[in-house]
Write a protein that binds this DNA or RNA. Sequence first.
DNA 1: CTGAAAGCGCTTACAG
DNA 2: CTGAAAGCGCTTACAG
Lengths: 349, 349
Amino acid sequence: MLAQPSRLAETVFAEPGCLHWACGTAGAAWRIEWYRGRVMGGSGRVTLNDVAAASGVSRATVSFVLNDDPNQTISAATRERVRQAAHDLGYVPHGLARALREGASRVVVLNIDWGLEGNYSRSYVRGLDDELAAHGHVLLVRHGHQTPQETRRVLDAIRPRAVIRFAEPYLTGHELEDRGGGWKDGLAAHSALQVRHLAERGHTHIAQALPDGENPVAEARLRFAAQTADRLGLAPVVSFIAPRPRTACARAVEEFRAARPEVTAVAAFTDDVALRALTALHDLGLTAPDDLAVMGYDDTEYGALVTPALTTIHIDAEAHGRLAARTALGLDTSGLEPAPARVIVRDSA
Amino acid sequence: MLAQPSRLAETVFAEPGCLHWACGTAGAAWRIEWYRGRVMGGSGRVTLNDVAAASGVSRATVSFVLNDDPNQTISAATRERVRQAAHDLGYVPHGLARALREGASRVVVLNIDWGLEGNYSRSYVRGLDDELAAHGHVLLVRHGHQTPQETRRVLDAIRPRAVIRFAEPYLTGHELEDRGGGWKDGLAAHSALQVRHLAERGHTHIAQALPDGENPVAEARLRFAAQTADRLGLAPVVSFIAPRPRTACARAVEEFRAARPEVTAVAAFTDDVALRALTALHDLGLTAPDDLAVMGYDDTEYGALVTPALTTIHIDAEAHGRLAARTALGLDTSGLEPAPARVIVRDSA
DNA sequence: CTGAAAGCGCTTACAG
DNA sequence: CTGAAAGCGCTTACAG
């Protein structure tokens, strides 16, 4: 945290119209930006009525012009007049009013659980946000464990156009449409990529390291790794849990190595899990890749900093985010090819 | 990423009333939760009108009862009847309609920049979310760099009750109210804590390690560290930049040590920066704490996993989040004491 | 003690 | 080609 927050200085920001930002409550140690549309009085906001009055047409006509309603045929002169008036007055549609009328606001909510930070989530959110913005929608995120009640509250409060569960298609890729030839993308492809790299390095006995705690994706990952190993003619993939507490993890690795001495490489569930494994090896007086190769997944910053530096998979999920956005909006998704994941070769595998 | 997403399985969720969840669009590889209030027809949603009809009173009376309007005196019998009807029908107020009328939705938006993940942000968001929920509001987060235009879009879309800039009071703590005796909390207190720990370990020449890139908080941190050192009678605090690229960071540390050989301890801006410094030392054939002690800030998971394990500051910002929530809602903030930060002593300092 | 009415700001059949 | 009207669902003065 605390790295590079921006624009701290910009605290008061007033605009003609109805925006008003102020510095928290008197005497409080907190500076908060407030929205006080009503504080400025009824005249604050420019509405359709104002535009209609200014351009000498009815409210309906203004709406038709501004929304480019294809069912109307309005003279070029009128359109121009309306547009000009709207622009001059600085008219911005009132999202709430529009949403009440249309049945949904131009907001899309993303549900995202804790502990999913990484390259994937960052690029995914960026792509989602950009694409949504390009179509006039706003992305808002809900963090933490989701319950039906929580989601319900969001729905009741702002009636978003859609609620997206983070990366669900990616994470459940195996059940879904096969995009152009097998494992071209998705969790399946990337699991395969990880195993393939290890195989190319000459490893034939590979283990998958999984995090502790409930994890709905672990089983799928394991299955993809197994299938890949099978195709490549490797020994069946085995697995072990790398728990978060340091000593417990060292013990787990020790026990695993005793039980499976033939295993020479570990495909970790994430960079986090890989780091746990690396630390365990260190604590056992062992090193990667000589005693055991360790490969991460999803390229976090510290992977480049640990010793040995982590070999990992880098996934650019920007296109995944864009796809999610278009799907949520019911738009055509063609022409959006996710970038292939790549192996970042460093020292650990 | 990918660690422990939950409830992936729960994809279809239908409820009487007007909620309808479905599985994305036909043939698409994406599963998305859709809100389609209108799909079920006008009869889908239970409105105030329905409750009024069911309980034999007017819409206004229902609103008065349900909102406990203190200006009205409504007979106990009527109230009971209305409540019962609302409950039986499963009435939930339509947030958008209410917001249109009241001028703001019951939503608070948190603006948070990239690269701020850590213990602080996590506990802050949790506290904020909980407290807001306790007062009938929903927290929604916007990620990434904020521009006035972006904020404006959110405002126009859902008219939130307030927009909070992440941890601003904490980050700008020095300008703010002095809570009970100097540096009792805030960035100032925690900077002091970090320096104090180093001093207690016998260090008299301390350097602050800062991240590369623009950073509005760096200057404040440095000042607090300097003030603390001054109070403790240490040598003036010096500083250097620990850039993200590994080799550049090693060079920076090398040059710094050559220029300031008397420095024996580093107070890092964050755990990330501390890790960079640790890696640089390693790359230079040096070790912490013997050649140079390194102390982190804000306790991330990998700090416990690197070698030497990182000594750091653990900050529980849950109360900060609650304070932000209450302030945003204009509520009394008394009785909310932030937990003091603590030093997590491990090996690096 | 309760109800009829206005209105938040917009969109969209429906007339002309 | 354009406007008057209804209505999304709620809250709140204002009458009775």
